[in-house]
């Protein structure tokens, strides 16, 4: 699959517009969860970016911090919900405060396929 053309206007999302204090994985865990962020913000933004054929830029900076479970459920969850290869190609993460987050989130998205297959096999 060809990488989205990022020179055209991309869809841009800031986690800070969702909350300054991201929570844990599921809504049942508490407020501002990764699940909530994915369902209310990320999926819609991804679908819009895909329909327009542009990149989805997610800015991770400006918040108090991230739990592993938030990042995995939001981004790994997006890759499980949608076309994983396209998600990986289309998503551009920006983190100047914690640059290592970019690699971490990419890892979650890449491993999402394995998780999906394991779930399908009923394990």
């Amino acid at each position: 699959m060809a990488a989205p053309n990022i020179s055209t206007s991309a869809v841009r999302v800031r986690v800070l517009d969702f909350t300054r204090t991201p929570g844990a994985r599921y809504r049942t865990d508490g407020p501002f969860s990764g699940e909530q962020f994915r369902d209310e913000i990320l999926v819609e933004a991804y679908d819009r970016a895909r329909a327009a054929g542009v990149a989805l830029i997610v800015v991770l900076d400006g918040v108090a911090g991230y739990a592993t479970s938030f990042l995995e459920e939001a981004f790994g969850g997006l890759a499980r919900d949608r076309d994983q290869a396209d998600v990986i190609a289309r998503l551009q993460l920006v983190s100047t405060e914690e640059p290592e987050l970019v690699g971490e989130v990419m890892e979650y998205m890449k491993e999402a396929r394995l998780a999906k297959r394991t779930q399908r096999l009923g394990r």
Binding site: A24, A64, G65, A67
Partner: peptide, 20 residues
């Protein structure tokens, strides 16, 4: 402040672990 982000992560993980 940025050096405290790891504590933010650890504390949330602890809470989530207890929750789940």
């Amino acid at each position: 402040r940025p050096e405290h982000k790891p504590s933010y992560r650890c504390l949330l993980e602890c809470m989530a672990n207890t929750r789940n």
